[in-house]
Computed example of a mutant assay.
Amino acid sequence: MPAPTATRANVPGLAAAAAAVVLCLLLHRVFPAVPVLTAAVILGLAVGNVPGPAGLAAGPWRPGLALAAKRFLRLGIVLLGLKVSLVDIAGLGWLTVVLIIALVGFSFGATYLVCRAFRLPGEEPVLVAAGFSICGVSAIGAVAAARGVRSEQAAVPAAMVTLCGTLAIAVLPLLSVVLGVSPERFGFLAGASVHDVGQVVATAQTGGAAALALAVVVKLVRVLMLAPVSALAGLQHRRRAGNSGDGKFPPLVPLFVAGFVAAVALRTTGLLPGGLLEAAAVLQELLFAAALFGLGASVNLRSLARTGGRAAAASLLSWAVIVASALALAVLLVPSA
């Protein structure tokens, strides 16, 4: 049980995160084109780097913001499992599911190689690859935990995956019009190439109900890969650490990832009422927004300037490769209307 002093130390930062989430929700209501999670990242970056607020973020707010960045993100990942039904995924057919999983593997490998080519530091190539290939900031948090990466080291990958996912909301509908892509193929493209579930919904709904329905199910196949990919990433980290003589290992499958799997199983039973699932989805977005605000506030823009350009270039190139691959798979698998 946390000590009372430690609990009190978290209050200012948690209050700041709560206020930031409310502000982001209001901003999204006034400007619906601005996603809540993107607003949270940008606001966090501002708070962490503007004189005055930056002192608070690095001082009295720091314990609470760190708690939000780590714990709230993990709770949100558990709730994410309540969106995944194995029954819905099975409806795609085994060949489609296998090819989507293959696309996840290709996307991970291609993004990792691109990030290495751009010389991104430390664990950033693995984290960006996980975020782009699976489910955005959720995958970054899961892989970071499996590899023992501190929350602040995941801040730049989280920012990149959130900002590129937001870019997709505007770019993919325009691309589909230019290329004359059918609504069904557009839905597959959105589900197979956009990072966060909320961003997939925002993108695919522009193509109509058929596009949205297919996009969500395709995306859920990618989300389902969260557990095995984080486990594989953790196993590779253990082997590397074992060879270096370091005997300290994070859990191969973090507890919150096990919670995600349990939530998937619970959703698949069909026993949960729709109202509860809707409430869980809202709570997940609020938790993610608070976590991204905390992560953004931990980023030093002066330090980011040294690698931020490379990270942005690597992210954009990786996403372009993923979009092209997803479009090719959509043409292969989805009949044209």
Score class of each variant (00 low, 15 high):
Gly296Phe: 03
Val217Met: 06
Ala9Val: 03
Thr307Arg: 09
Phe260Asp: 03
Leu295Pro: 14
Pro4Leu: 08
Gly308Trp: 15
Ala57Asp: 12
Asp246Ala: 03
Asn243Pro: 07
Glu285Ile: 06
Leu224Cys: 07
Ala159Trp: 12
Arg238Asp: 08
Gly274Lys: 11
Ala258Val: 09
Ala18His: 07
Ser303Thr: 13
Ala289Leu: 06
Ala158Cys: 13
Leu317Ser: 00
Gly122Lys: 00
Ala297Asp: 13
Thr307Cys: 01
Gly296Gln: 10
Val201Glu: 12
Cys115Arg: 00
Val229Ile: 09
Val178Met: 09
Gly13Pro: 06
Gln199Ser: 02
Ala312Gly: 02
Gly81Tyr: 13
Ala290Thr: 00
Pro53Met: 01
Ala231Asp: 11
Leu333Met: 11
Leu103Arg: 01
Ala117Thr: 14
Ala262Tyr: 12
Phe118Ile: 02
Ala66Arg: 15
Thr96Asn: 06
Gly245Asn: 07
Gly275Val: 04
Gly234Lys: 01
Gly64Gln: 01
Gln284Thr: 10
Ala155Cys: 04
Ala209Glu: 15
Phe293Met: 01
Gly208Met: 09
Phe106Gly: 01
Gly148Ser: 05
Glu285Leu: 08
Leu292Trp: 11
Val331Gly: 04
Val177Phe: 02
Gln284Ile: 04
Lys248Cys: 09
Ala146Ile: 05
Ala213Gly: 10
Ala40Gln: 14
Leu235Tyr: 11
Ala159Tyr: 11
Ser230Ile: 02
Leu25Thr: 06
Ala58Phe: 01
Thr111Met: 04
Leu26Val: 13
Ala311Cys: 07
Pro4Glu: 13
Ala15Phe: 09
Val22Arg: 03
Gly131Trp: 08
Gly296Thr: 00
Leu37Thr: 07
Val156Leu: 12
Lys248Glu: 15
Ala159Glu: 11
Met225Ser: 08
Leu82Lys: 06
Ala265Glu: 10
Arg116Cys: 09
Leu43Ala: 10
Leu27Trp: 15
Leu26Pro: 10
Ile322Leu: 07
Val87Asp: 15
Phe260Ile: 00
Leu255Phe: 06
Leu163Asn: 14
